[in-house]
Amino acid sequence: MNIFRLLGDICHLVAIIVLLLKIWKTRSCAGISGKSQILFALVYTTRYVDLFFTYVSLYNSVMKVIFLASSYATLYLIYVKFKATYDFNHDTFRIEFLLIPCVILSLLITHDYSPVELLWTFSIYLEAVAILPQLFMVSKTGEAETITSHYLFALGAYRALYIVNWIYRYYTESFIDGIAVVAGIIQTILYADFFYLYITKVLKGKDFKLPA
């Protein structure tokens, strides 16, 4: 473990908690893409299947349980409890256009063809594009609630910090995982224009609105 990965995991945890609190406190999931949350739940489910038979550390197991529980809790809030506030008119991204290429790519490029490894690879590729329905929804509505923009910033910052972690691990323990690094870079690039808008607008106290 290194400080960059720890900060990344904390950002990730903060993002998930901020989203849960936003929906719970405002009793509304307006502006939130349920489809992205479905993809995130799928990412954690496919990546953490080893939760029950591979023990890395208490921290690792606890965080996996938290991520799994919170992602399904978020799905419950969106699709069951506050279903009436779910903006399905704007959450129209075709996620099959993300799932199918990720399945194909994880069969073409993977470290190993064991079921657990294939699921891990699939989850890495899927996580890289899981935010697209949410970014698509923000572009369709042309704006996002400030709290939603904080959620997106924390989520984007988590993987950006993981890139620093990978650089650090490369130089300190000559460890590198090309699949995770390439997917992580793509994932972070997808947030680039959002980061620009967040820093130039939200941090100056303005609303998060896309230029018309």
Binding site: V56, F67, H111, Y170, F175, I176, D177
Partner: peptide
């Protein structure tokens, strides 16, 4: 540089 078989990252 090696990619560890067991993934120790979240």
């Amino acid at each position: 540089a090696i990619a560890k078989a067991s993934h120790d990252e979240l």
